[in-house]
Simulated assay, not measured.
Amino acid sequence: MPQAAITGAAERVRIPWRGRQVEIEYQWLEADRPDAPVMIFLHEGLGSLAMWKDFPARVCRAAGLRGLVYSRPGYGNSTPRPPEEAWAADFMHRQAYEVLPALREALGLARPAWLLGHSDGGSIALLHAARFPELTAGTVLMAPHVMVEDISVASIARAAEAYRQGGLRERLARYHADVDSAFGAWAGIWLDPAFRRWNIEAEAAGLRSPTLAIQGLDDEYGTLEQVRAIARIALSVKLLELPACGHSPHRDQPLQVTESIRQFIQTSRRQA
């Protein structure tokens, strides 16, 4: 299936964060369906609004949803990270507890929404859903992280080397106004030895919304323990473990992932 970029112009909104105003680029999908349930898409650690390509639009069409896609601060065309600012180990908690609530308030999104997050975005979606169950209709987690594994650190170290050599930097620069801001913050914290103690299993225990957790069997950034730990800890978790699939299930197995999300949402809405 072709992966055309998201069409239409992104909008921008300012939100207060960390004592300053930051600009967030965002886009509504299926905007002509104001009464449809909303799904919020949370991108991966090196992602952005544009890097999702056509996946959010396909999910929204398949499941009858309206979509909100945005770039977190430091990514895409949102406000870049200040050069002197290094992320701390709680960077995903801040996104889940501070940035996303502020964005929802700025856009008037008070109704419960579905959350779909990939990789770091999956962890942020989990944290937001567990902290704000009244705002969450259900959660789709693709290759989320709940702990730091050796395979994750090794793969990020290889990515950092590819970035230094230039090839990865050139590819990512198409999707970020300040690519060094995006990559530097992500690689810097993930490769910090102190981050090895990061773990959100305790937070996952608060997850109450219906959840679909998806993991590729060939994921180079995490093992199946990531999603299986969520299933052991949280309520109402359905696992989808995909063969011939790496860290990006929506790119490696797009048809199966889209259909599985559609069925999950349909079933969850019937049971609500």
Rank of each mutant, 00 (worst) to 15 (best):
A154R: 15
V179S: 05
M92W: 05
A173H: 10
W87N: 07
W87S: 09
L100P: 00
H128Y: 11
G184A: 12
G76H: 10
F91H: 15
L109P: 04
A137R: 15
E84M: 02
A102Y: 06
M142E: 15
S152C: 10
V140R: 11
I151K: 14
R158P: 00
G184H: 12
Y97R: 15
R171D: 14
A173P: 06
T79I: 07
V153M: 10
Y75D: 06
H176T: 12
R164T: 00
P82C: 09
R197C: 01
R174A: 12
P112K: 08
A159F: 13
E170D: 08
L127G: 10
A143N: 10
P80S: 05
L172C: 07
R197L: 00
W190A: 07
A187N: 15
A204F: 13
G166N: 08
A204H: 13
M142T: 12
E161K: 11
P80K: 04
L100C: 02
L115S: 01
L109K: 03
S155I: 01
R81Y: 10
R197A: 13
S123F: 07
Q95P: 00
R174C: 03
E201M: 03
S123P: 11
Y97H: 15
D178G: 02
A182K: 09
T79W: 11
W114P: 06
G138N: 12
S181A: 04
I189W: 07
V148F: 04
R169D: 12
M147P: 01
M142C: 14
R171Y: 13
R158V: 00
P144N: 08
F183V: 15
I200G: 00
V146A: 10
A102K: 12
R94G: 08
A182N: 07
S209I: 00
M92K: 03
S155M: 05
R72Y: 05
A113Q: 14
A182M: 04
E203W: 05
L116G: 01
L207V: 05
I156Q: 12
H93D: 14
V69K: 13
G138Y: 07
